Amino acid sequence: MFELPIDVDEIKGFLDAAEGSALQRAFRAGAALGPGLEIGAYCGKSAVWLGAVAKGLGTTLFSVDHHRGSEENQPGWEYHDPDLWDHSVGAMDTLPHLRRTLRQAGLEDHVIPVVAKSAALASLWRTPLGFLFIDGGHTMEAALGDYRGWTPHLAPGGVLAIHDVFPDPADGGRPPFEIYQRALASDLFCEVEAVKSLRVLRKQ
Rank of each mutant, 00 (worst) to 15 (best):
M1W: 00
E3D: 02
I6R: 11
D7N: 13
D7K: 09
V8Q: 06
D9Q: 06
E10M: 12
I11W: 09
I11V: 13
K12G: 15
K12R: 11
G13N: 13
F14Y: 15
F14R: 11
L15Q: 08
A18Y: 12
E19Y: 00
E19A: 12
G20F: 05
G20S: 09
A22C: 02
L23A: 08
L23V: 05
R25I: 00
A26C: 11
A26E: 12
L33R: 14
G34L: 08
G34N: 04
G34V: 08
I39F: 01
G40Q: 02
G40P: 07
A41P: 00
G44I: 14
G44V: 07
S46H: 13
L50K: 05
G51K: 10
A52P: 10
V53N: 01
A54N: 01
K55A: 12
L57T: 07
L57H: 02
G58C: 07
G58F: 09
T59L: 00
T60W: 05
F62K: 06
F62R: 11
R68C: 10
G69Q: 01
S70L: 14
S70D: 09
E72S: 12
Q74M: 07
G76F: 07
G76P: 06
W77Q: 15
Y79N: 06
D81T: 11
L84H: 14
W85T: 03
D86E: 13
A91M: 10
M92E: 03
D93R: 13
P96Y: 04
H97L: 11
H97V: 11
R99V: 06
R100K: 15
L102C: 10
R103T: 08
Q104R: 14
G106F: 12
L107C: 02
E108I: 08
I112K: 11
I112G: 02
I112C: 03
P113L: 04
K117M: 07
A119M: 11
A119N: 02
L121V: 04
A122F: 01
A122S: 08
S123Y: 00
S123E: 15
L124C: 06
L124Q: 12
W125N: 01
W125I: 01
F131D: 02
D135T: 00
G136D: 05
G136H: 05
G137M: 05
E141D: 10
A143R: 00
A143V: 01
L144R: 14
Y147K: 03
R148C: 03
R148T: 09
G149F: 07
W150Y: 07
W150M: 08
T151P: 04
P152K: 07
P156S: 05
G158M: 08
A161G: 02
H163R: 08
D164A: 08
D164I: 06
V165Y: 03
V165R: 03
F166H: 15
F166C: 09
P167A: 13
D168Y: 06
A170R: 12
D171G: 01
G172P: 10
G172F: 05
F177Q: 15
I179Y: 11
I179E: 04
I179V: 15
Y180V: 09
Y180W: 15
R182L: 13
R182C: 03
A183S: 12
L184S: 05
A185H: 07
S186A: 12
S186N: 09
L188E: 15
F189W: 08
C190Y: 14
V192D: 12
V195L: 04
L198V: 09
V200H: 06
V200G: 03
L201V: 05
L201N: 04
R202T: 13
R202W: 09
K203S: 08
Q204K: 13
